[in-house]
Simulated scan of single mutants.
Amino acid sequence: MTTLDQPLTDREALPVELVDESGRAVGACPVAQAHRAPGLLHRAFSVLLFDEAGRVLLQQRAAVKTRFPLLWANTCCGHPAPGESVVAAAEVRLAEELGLATTLTEVGTFRYQAEDPATGRVEHEWDHVLIGFLDTDVPRADPAEVADYAWIQPDALRDALAAEPQRYTPWLAEVLEIAEKANRRTGK
């Protein structure tokens, strides 16, 4: 079998790292199992990129996503493999989803749980927020991952989240808050 004949990786079968209430690793299971109701608390990451004008890069999740398809989210997100560096995993996902590379910095964590009413799947995540800055690169979105992307000022995004929360993922507001605080501290 040649490389082109091999099936694509089933992302739902990949392992995620289960964590306790303090974010300490306690085991592993496949992505699909972690997202079955009521959801198993596991490690995840959310990346938010800023540009020189202070805008943030959002992506609209692809229609084939098993959780929150077609909703607008932060630049990219995913799960590190058990024991994998969060930053390294985030850099790989950023390249896979949007064809981008930049230095990422972890700026905080938060925990959330949300059920997708459309699919019945559950996010129960210990989420590491990472930020980065993009000067000139133009995203090259993988259509299997990303339906669309857009740059938006944080104030306009907050207004949109308040006016039409159903258009956005349930974790986006917290990611934005943590990322913006860190961005203000760095003075970029």
Rank of each mutant, 00 (worst) to 15 (best):
T169R: 11
L130T: 12
L172W: 07
G132V: 04
G39K: 00
W72P: 03
D135N: 10
A173L: 08
D51P: 13
L134H: 09
T66F: 07
A160L: 10
F68L: 03
R184E: 14
L40T: 09
P165A: 06
D155I: 09
L161T: 12
F68R: 05
P15R: 05
K65W: 02
H124C: 07
V146S: 06
W171F: 06
L58Y: 01
Q166M: 04
A62P: 14
E180S: 08
G54T: 12
N183A: 15
P82W: 00
R111C: 10
A147Y: 03
P69C: 04
T105S: 13
R185H: 13
L172T: 05
K188Y: 10
D155V: 13
L71N: 01
T103G: 10
T102V: 11
A88T: 10
C29P: 14
T169L: 09
P117K: 07
L157R: 07
T103Q: 10
A63D: 08
L134C: 11
A89F: 08
E115D: 02
G120V: 00
T119V: 00
R93D: 15
W72S: 13
G54Y: 15
H128V: 00
Q60K: 13
L176K: 12
H79L: 06
A44I: 01
A63S: 13
F50W: 15
Q153S: 10
N74Y: 09
P38H: 02
K65P: 01
A32G: 02
G27F: 06
E106I: 05
R185C: 05
A160Q: 09
T169M: 01
V138A: 14
V175T: 14
E17M: 03
L14A: 13
N74C: 14
H79Y: 11
V31C: 12
E97D: 15
D127K: 09
F68D: 02
G99E: 07
A150H: 14
E84K: 08
L48K: 13
L48I: 01
D155H: 12
A95F: 01
V129T: 13
K65G: 11
D5G: 12
Q113S: 13
E97M: 07
D10K: 01
R158M: 06
A141W: 08
A150M: 12
L130E: 00
W126C: 03
A101S: 15
W126P: 02
V31R: 12
Q60W: 02
G99C: 09
A25T: 11
